[in-house]
Computed example of a mutant assay.
Amino acid sequence: MTDASQTAAGPFEGYLCFSVYTAGLAFNRLYKQVLDRFGLTYPQYLVLVALRQRDGRTVSELGEALFLESNTLTPLIKRLEAAGLVERRRDTRDERVVRVSLSDAGRALAIDIECVPPQIGEAIGIDHARLGQMAQTLDELAAGLRRAVRD
């Protein structure tokens, strides 16, 4: 037995989780189109952005910033290192700690990819102020979800 309004609007209308899920899928497709010309995946892009903001982060700091576990982040960093975009070094004060820094090529690419956010915004067709409001709302949602998972 199917409700006619449910069929017309879709079975997931009003499901915030589904809206976030489908938006994430669409973002991934759009970022792939934009990042392909730089030879980057979205997670690699995020690492470069994080290091451009503050170079020399530890692997654990990068993991916290990107919400990635080390078993996902370490191979990602190794691929960036193999591509000549980052360098890994042991911390001089604590040999157990690995710091990640942009190489010269990585620094140049990090500057080149500054064009990505405006391109994404333009492709979406939503003004910058509205996108900022949406990001703030989603950040609040994410924080609430993280708190709920910890409790």
Rank of each mutant, 00 (worst) to 15 (best):
D55W: 13
R90F: 09
Q33T: 12
R150M: 05
M134S: 05
L138A: 00
R52Y: 14
F18S: 07
P75H: 08
L48P: 00
D112N: 00
L48R: 00
L46Q: 08
V100F: 11
R54G: 13
Y42P: 02
L62V: 11
A105Y: 08
L40W: 10
V100T: 11
E95S: 14
F27G: 15
R88M: 13
P117S: 06
E61P: 04
A83S: 09
N71H: 15
G39Q: 06
A65V: 12
L85K: 01
A23L: 12
G56D: 04
D127E: 10
R90Y: 07
Q44Y: 00
G144N: 03
T7N: 07
R147Y: 13
L80C: 05
D112M: 05
V98R: 06
R150L: 13
M1G: 05
T41R: 14
L51A: 07
I77Y: 04
L73C: 00
A110Y: 08
A105L: 10
T2G: 08
V20W: 00
S60G: 00
A4Q: 03
M1N: 04
T7Y: 07
R150N: 08
E64F: 12
L76H: 03
Y45A: 01
T92P: 03
C115Y: 01
R90T: 05
R93P: 06
A105W: 07
E13V: 12
A148G: 02
A4V: 02
E69V: 14
I111D: 08
E87V: 15
G14L: 11
V97A: 15
D151S: 14
P75T: 09
F12T: 14
Q119K: 10
F38T: 00
P75W: 03
V49M: 12
N28M: 11
I124A: 01
R79H: 09
E114Q: 14
V59K: 10
G132Q: 12
R88P: 10
T137V: 10
R54N: 12
V86D: 05
V86N: 07
I113F: 12
L141A: 02
I126F: 08
V100N: 13
T2E: 04
R96H: 07
R89I: 09
P118I: 07
L16G: 08
G63F: 14
P117L: 02
D139F: 01
A105H: 12
P117V: 13
A142P: 07
P75V: 14
R96T: 01
G14Y: 11
L51N: 03
M134E: 03
A82H: 15
A129V: 15
R96W: 15
A82I: 13
D127Q: 02
V59Y: 00
G24V: 04
V149R: 14
L141T: 09
R88E: 15
A26L: 11
G125S: 03
A50G: 08
R57C: 13
E114W: 12
R89E: 10
V97L: 14
Q119L: 15
V116L: 09
A4T: 03
F38L: 06
A82L: 10
D3F: 06
E64S: 15
V149M: 13
Q136P: 03
Q44C: 05
V97G: 02
